[in-house]
Design a protein around this nucleic acid. Structure first.
Lengths: 338, 338
DNA sequence: TTGAAAGCGCTAACAC
DNA sequence: GTGTTAGCGCTTTCAA
């Protein structure tokens, strides 16, 4: 059996409540008593039983992070950031994968396991605005992403439209006017693809450049392979362009590879920009210009907002937007290493 | 306040123990009673309090997975696999990042938070055989990887030597005899780099091909950039080779990119193989031949061994080896898509 | 400044 | 089959 408060109390010759006071840094403990207790704690190698503490105190010191899948680089980096942000507040993170499955996304919110944590940071991929009434759980929720805006939950969003407008402007500022898009979703409005395409169109419009569907490539998934296939498509149908906007980094990487194989020099013949600022964009050849959607800020804000909500369950839901930043690298501005 | 067993019992008109019996599927409950209770449960939206259950039963239904960092693709995919494997047993996974920091690796094992889970699956990157005496915690541990072999803990290993010998043989079987290595660690014996280099040397030796340090490129980290830089090195010093063994996939991808830029046709001029079977190797151009180190099996075995150990804390430690598999793709056997 | 008592919500033993 | 009793290890009141 593990040592308990009582064991420590017996060894230290005090009541077990005094030990509790020492552990919780209560102010009114005489220094000599505290020292005595601390010796006993060390001697016995006492570790508090967090489960018991949770039951009594009503909070666990853990938060749940629900996301589609860790093997998607974007979510792996998001999880990394959330774990680090949570650690700063002394919280551990429990990860649930939903596999981008609607039922699993719903299940996450109603699972009793959720109560092993104090709150949920939830990045849905299937649930959308129409499901807003289903978004509720036994613990406070913070939503991530842009699929659900008007709800009673707190929400930390990526500025998809604004950021993708900026990415497009970056290309326009470099004098590029025929900007192909890789990764659009047919008919999508909400969701990353729809919103990013909208930002692109807004940027063109602001400069009086007509939108040309002939240089927009549609895909289903956002893998490298889709980016590559989409670029093959564009080349096959003889599309002419002087820049490419990959709606995320993996698409852009796939497209860039195909361009290089086809003899395009990047950025000379075609500038390429992605979206997400994945770690791998710093290591490709050429390094990939991209948009930092504020992943660290999203993670930190989500944790902070969740903690606020736990502390104060009432009060109106908050909607936050992360600051984004265009990150110019070799694939648009050239130069750099051999 | 959330509804409890007592609330349900009151509504159903039975004792709260009967409700407990229903929830835990105890055999001796009359069907009519069960039905009555189930109605009450639904009516009140009762959810068991897992914290209380944990305190009483002594287990939490969670396991901790400690790894260096989720933003490294290998560990992201490992975590994915562990979460899915754990889910099959009804377990959730709590992730701790150690950042490949020795102190954090030690801390993970002594943190009281560990007790919020029933066991630890631990993939150390800094702790090694010399630290074997420090490997111990309040909960059962399963070690992953190859840094610590002889310990009192259960252990699930990658067959680094054997797998890398097979990878090398795959290249030899294709008639390649000048096989460059990308990613060696100067002077390393234990650890992935050391063991994989050893497998490579064994394969050469078995065929009577002399080892040539002139086509082995050393690096510090295992990023794409290191693979690229290492390949630049090799090319700069005029190394001649007809194949490249990247000691992991990201190194191989970096090297492959540089080769292509230098005009090498892959696999015609140089075959390339990596190690890890990352998802992204299926999407590069050409697709990357690699070694599947048995990640899913590692994950499933680790969870199973951990559960066994939880059930039976005594008994000798077990050491398991995951089955590996060479995965030939376009970068060695060519053919395939345009 | 310290101690005693109560009880968080549940499961396990045993009685009925 | 069902109910009673105890208690997991801790924090929180409240009293001393």
């Amino acid at each position: 059996m593990a040592t308990t408060l009582h064991d420590v109390a017996r060894v230290a010759g005090v009541s077990f409540k005094t030990v509790s006071n020492v552990i919780n840094n209560h102010p009114h403990v005489r220094p000599t008593t505290r020292a005595k207790v601390e010796v006993a704690i060390r001697e016995l190698g006492y570790r508090p039983n967090l489960t018991a503490r949770s039951l009594r105190s009503g909070h666990t010191g853990a938060v749940t992070l629900a996301l589609p899948q860790l093997s998607l680089p974007y979510f792996a980096e998001l999880a990394d950031a959330v774990i680090e942000a949570a650690a700063k507040h002394g919280l551990v993170v429990l990860i649930e994968q939903t596999g981008a499955d609607r039922d699993r996304e719903l299940e996450v919110m109603s699972s009793p396991r959720l109560k092993m944590s104090d709150g949920l940071i939830f990045s849905p991929l299937e649930l959308g605005q129409a499901d807003v009434d289903l978004i509720r759980a036994d613990v406070p929720i913070v939503l991530l992403g842009e699929r659900i805006f008007d709800s009673n939950s707190d929400h930390v969003a990526i500025q998809n439209i604004e950021a993708s407008r900026s990415a497009t402007e970056h290309l326009l500022d470099l004098g590029r006017t025929r900007i192909a898009v890789v990764g659009a979703h047919q008919g999508e409005v909400i969701g990353s693809a729809g919103l990013r395409l909208r930002g692109y169109r807004e940027a063109l419009q602001a400069r009086g450049i007509p939108y040309d569907d002939g240089i927009v490539a549609y895909v289903r998934d956002w893998h490298r392979s889709n980016g590559a296939a989409a670029m093959h498509d564009l080349l096959d149908r003889g599309a002419t362009f002087d820049a490419v906007f990959g709606l995320n980094d993996t698409l852009a990487q796939g497209a860039m590879r195909v361009l290089q194989e086809a003899g395009y020099r990047i950025p000379d013949d075609a500038a390429v920009i992605g979206f997400d600022d994945l770690d791998e964009t710093r290591y490709s050849l050429p390094t990939l210009s991209t948009v930092d959607p504020g992943r660290n800020e999203i993670a930190e804000t989500a944790v902070k907002v969740l903690l606020d909500r736990i502390k104060n369950p009432e009060g109106p839901p908050r909607a936050m937007k992360a600051a984004f930043r265009v990150v110019p690298r070799e694939s648009t501005v050239g130069a750099g290493r051999p």
